[in-house]
């Protein structure tokens, strides 16, 4: 039958039909083999399944309704991360009329400890910009869930292709990283016309999933658990962090240079407290 079909020239319509079948056949032929950790590049453009989210959502937010992001929360995240151990996330929050911002929770579905961090904001804040860097362990949805003062939740999400972020070896020598742990840097970008500032807390932020190259055992988790940034005694934001915040936790955030000092206080999982005050 095939040989017979080939013995005659094809009309243009037949050529189009043939090409269409040839192109679609491999896709329609069955599920593409792909390992769980590394879905085939350029596979289905359809949204990946959210089964993991369905399993963890209740553990994080209970039965509470979670609304669409709308204009309340917007997130920028790379579709494919250059470095899975340092995936930049940028969040912009704007509370609906008549409310203020209360909290922001970052969730990385496929990380074994999915809650990357929870941020809370000083009273009366209606808009906020925050960016930080996180570890992404395998192809995953990253979610930013904002809570407003009236108790409503709004979620933005992005699918990030990255793998191995939680287990990637630390970039710094362990002894050196430990000796500088807790050093805090502050920088205001007011001079460049941007109402933003950045805080960096030097810390290896060990995830507990990184293999020690000498002992060949997992390095115990050791990370910044809490951080508080305030200006002249008034809180700007506070963070409760987990193992998914990248080493040397860094936060860029909305900031009005008001000629007043900035205070940063942090505590790690070993109970060490680090503080610094930066004069205007």
């Amino acid at each position: 039958m095939v040989a017979q079909a080939l013995s005659h020239p094809l009309s243009r319509r037949e050529v189009i039909a043939a090409l269409t079948i040839a192109v679609l056949a491999p896709v329609c032929g069955g599920p593409l083999p792909a390992s769980a950790a590394e879905p085939a590049a350029g596979a289905s453009p359809a949204a990946p399944p959210e089964t993991t989210w369905a399993g963890i959502r209740g553990d994080i937010f209970g039965e509470r309704a979670i609304g669409e992001a709308g204009d309340v929360v917007a997130m920028e995240a790379p579709a494919r991360a250059e470095d899975a151990a340092m995936v930049p996330l940028a969040l912009r929050l704007a509370a609906p009329e008549g409310t203020t911002l209360k909290a922001l929770t970052l969730v990385i579905d496929e990380n074994p400890s999915p809650v990357a961090g929870t941020f809370t904001f000083g009273p009366g804040r209606t808009a906020f910009m925050l960016s930080t860097r996180v570890r992404v362990n395998s192809y995953s949805f990253v979610r930013a869930v904002a809570e407003t003062s009236d108790g409503r939740l709004f979620m933005a999400k992005a699918f990030v292709k990255a793998s191995g972020g939680c287990s990637a070896p630390a970039t710094k020598d362990p002894a050196e990283a430990a000796s500088h742990a807790g050093e805090i840097r502050f920088r205001s970008f007011a001079g460049t016309g941007q109402r933003e500032a950045q805080v960096q807390i030097r810390h290896p932020n060990y995830s507990g999933l990184q293999m020690d190259q000498v002992t060949r055992l997992y390095t115990p988790a050791w990370f910044v658990r809490e951080a508080r940034v305030s200006q002249d005694g008034r809180p700007i934001f506070a963070m409760e962090g987990g193992i998914s915040i990248s080493e040397d936790p860094t936060f860029r955030f909305s900031f009005e240079a008001a000629g007043t000092p900035v205070e940063v206080e942090a505590q790690d999982t070993e109970g060490k407290t680090f503080t610094a005050t930066f004069a205007p």
Binding site: A5, L6, H8, E14, A17, A18, I21, A22, V23
Partner: peptide
């Protein structure tokens, strides 16, 4: 003759070649 022959089979034949 061309009209009588099922066009689908011809298209399928070429589909195999292109694939």
């Amino acid at each position: 003759r061309a009209f009588a022959r099922p066009r689908l089979w011809r298209a399928l034949g070429w589909a195999i070649v292109f694939a």
